[in-house]
Design a protein around this nucleic acid. Structure first.
Lengths: 192, 192
DNA sequence: CGTTTGCTTGAATTCTGTCAAAGCAGGTGG
DNA sequence: CCACCTGCTTTGACAGAATTCAAGCAAACG
């Protein structure tokens, strides 16, 4: 159940059996079905979720009600609104399962307690947030400095598995395009 | 010299005189003139800079050589490419002073040593990276979900001091617009 | 005082979004 | 198991918005 999570963990930080047991006692497992929400806009984000199986997305709605996807998360990825999770402010994001999924959850109490009690967990979390920061910086950089076509090509180059599992309208939303424009870009690229 | 830095520090984490002395021994001060570089694209980012006086910006160049500004940093802010700083990979960003500035620098050795030796520093750095993450998330969200006009209005609402000290072409670059388009947006807003 | 740099404005162009329609595919319920 | 329905993708025509190119003007700088 928690195997993939601890595989990810020990890939970054070594872990004794005792400490693993301590950490595991603070975690929980949640199954979530396609189209169900893990977080809804206007609520506080109370968990950090590790994706053991399935796929999720986080998005925000603009003033016209249109969705803008911030992130996809497949197996082995984390998803959360760390801002809301850490500050307790309400979130402006929604996190939704795009496939039936199985998650390992860390709630806010577990997060704070484990930071105090487990040095390995502390080291792991620092790496996790650093990794989230780096991923976000890359996302912002490509968003502001590449053309729509370049953004699409980079996405299929870096994450071909995501494009296969996610509908084109979601890819379009992630890239900041309408589905129509993405369809035309794909046609142009297919005709070389 | 280091006063403003430690003021910022103790605003987040309490600090004994001994620990302050230890930390200070690892820091250095650098003066940098307008238009000089703190980091150039293609080099490794070797420092995290705290702005004691002045203003800087970080930007990246796209395939057509156009600049896209990622961040401004005024007094009391940090600026760096944390990705390059932490991983040792070369940076795709340039950091440039836009005013004569005075900086407090932390290099990579100091960063690692202080993490080992100073618990307060460790706690401070965790908050710093978390803060950087949160700022980046806000930046990305406004970039992908607001119109150019909304982005401009939010910027002058949140950071009126930045708009006053930075040229309009830089504001335009930060907002992802040409200077001409920003000029037209300002005209529309002035005519209500 | 001359040169450079930044801001504004206009006109033409290009790209993306919008609206609409049609074909397909997958899922659901009878 | 099949018919239907809903949502996704594609395509076309059109409108709208931003970029590009060009010029003029003001302010800053050496």
């Amino acid at each position: 159940m928690y195997d993939r999570f601890f595989q990810h963990f020990t890939g970054k930080v070594p872990l004794s059996a005792d400490e693993r047991a301590l950490i595991q006692s603070f975690l929980s497992v949640k199954k979530i079905r396609k189209k169900q929400y893990l977080l809804q806009e206007g609520n506080v984000c109370t968990v950090v979720a590790f994706v053991d199986e399935g796929a999720l997305r986080s998005y925000t709605n603009d003033s016209e009600g249109k969705e803008h996807i911030l992130q996809f998360a497949l197996e082995g990825w984390f998803i959360s609104d760390l801002y809301s999770f850490l500050t307790g402010e309400v979130s402006s994001y929604t996190i939704e399962a795009i496939e039936d999924s199985e998650l390992v959850l860390i709630n806010q109490l577990a997060y704070q307690e484990l930071l105090k009690r487990s040095p390995s967990y502390q080291a792991y979390m620092l790496q996790l947030i650093t990794g989230a920061y780096i991923a976000l910086q890359k996302r912002l950089t490509t968003t502001i400095s590449l053309s729509p076509e370049e953004r699409y090509q980079q996405l299929i180059g870096l994450y071909p598995n995501i494009v296969q599992r996610v509908s084109q309208r979601m890819v379009a939303s992630y890239l900041g395009l309408t589905p129509e424009t993405l369809s035309r870009i794909r046609r142009r690229l297919a005709h070389e």
